[in-house]
Design a binder for these strands. Structure first.
Lengths: 233, 233
DNA sequence: CGGGAATCCAACAAAATGTTACAACGCTTC
DNA sequence: GAAGCGTTGTAACATTTTGTTGGATTCCCG
């Protein structure tokens, strides 16, 4: 048997830290507590927790930004604890990469159960997103905003185009809804902003040399969204 | 990991089924609804959903037992929806293998976000279903929305047509009632929406080269529904 | 065989998406 | 600061997909 799994706890109230820590240790986990985000971030360089419990109400940093960074860079399960009970808060937290969202006041037993549920399935290794990737002969360099055609021709990518392409390459061969795009690309369901989406995609298609009648890479699913058809290499 | 992910919904209230189904389809998932556990279990033999939304308040079976069986035998993410708000209920559900536990009344947006959070990491052992399947010489590619005739001719499939065809290939040689179709496909069962069904099927039949007088693949059962007659390979 | 209901289908209307031109904005350079 | 360049959103129009409608057709059953 391996050693106990490590849970990092980030909360500014000592009382809560003690409560959580005690319940988790009781349940057989190891814990490490932090009162401030900076402390926590510093500690991350020398430890890799299996799960992180994060209170969003931190004074010294934007909690959501931290959650997002953790979600993309670390392989740990991320569980938000928050006093904000609005549905929108929960949705945002989960969309940003949190694996669960627990509302205060919470019951320690439930927190334990939720952490167990999260750790039951193997946690994915920290997969940092490659900045350069290839698909169908093309090469997209998101550092330099450069798109290289199969024949070697280089085209600059605008930011808007890169955003769309990134979204596609992050979810290859999967339906991406318009709503999803709008959400990710910033524009809240703006009135006429989804028209801008079309234009962005149209421009990206042009740069990818798509045949309007028969797009091979970015396929439209009328009434549903788009699919990016390519193996990412 | 190729086509849209499939979510199974098990709830005895049609209203809730419609609500969830509609929100999830909007978000880019495919859904299949069931009103009773026995139905659901029968269907599991021929489909492998990526996630299951299960209402615990089912009349015809012990929901928790079902959850436990699913958790151990299927690779799908399991999310309980329940009216029982006690902490002990939640803990029990999670301990039995559920991945999440949502309390009624719920907000569809949050359900979507939680399912996304659950499916973000690769689902364990969930054998992704074939994205391309064959029947009676035809080939249906649901990634590319492409239908290939026995003679090799390719026809694009529209989303509406693909939805219908998928429903057929998911339940070959089995009666599909109109009500079932309306529920799985449209959701918003408008007054004259079942007329639209006819049209969808009619269009699909045309693409499949069916003889109106003597359909070989999609057979009408007068007063009952349709049957898709073909071995799926 | 006839009546009523269910289903099919062709033409139309509505909605969603693609495309192009243009104007506003920001950034650089002189 | 003005001219030049690229980027981006908006509006207008073209195109495609989908839902709707109404009548023709088919089916069931007596």
């Amino acid at each position: 048997m391996t050693e106990a799994q490590l849970i990092a706890i980030l909360d500014d109230e000592p009382e809560i830290r003690r409560l959580l820590s005690s319940a988790l240790e009781q349940a057989g986990f190891r814990t490490q507590c932090f009162g401030r985000a900076t402390e926590f971030e510093a500690a991350l360089r020398r430890m890799t927790p299996d799960a992180c419990l994060i209170d969003l109400g931190l004074p010294d940093r934007d909690g959501l930004a931290l959650v997002h960074r953790l979600a993309t860079e670390s392989g740990a399960a991320i569980i938000i604890i928050s006093g904000r009970a609005q549905v929108q808060d929960r949705v945002t937290g989960l969309e940003l990469g949190a694996d669960d969202y627990i509302i205060k006041p919470f019951e320690p037993a439930e927190v334990v159960a939720r952490i167990r549920a999260r750790l039951r399935r193997p946690v994915q290794g920290a997969a940092s997103r490659a900045q350069t990737l290839r698909f169908a002969g093309w090469t997209a360099d998101f550092d330099r905003y450069l798109l290289t055609a199969p024949d070697g021709a280089e085209t600059p990518l605008s930011h808007a185009e890169a955003e769309v392409l990134r979204m596609f390459t992050d979810n290859p061969r999967r339906l991406i809804t318009r709503a999803q795009m709008l959400e990710t690309l910033g524009g809240a369901a703006g009135e006429s902003f989804d028209r801008a989406m079309d234009v962005r995609i149209s421009r990206l298609r042009t740069k990818l040399g798509e045949d309007p009648k028969n797009p091979r890479l970015i396929k439209t699913i009328y009434g549903a969204g788009y699919i990016f058809l390519a193996e990412i290499g």
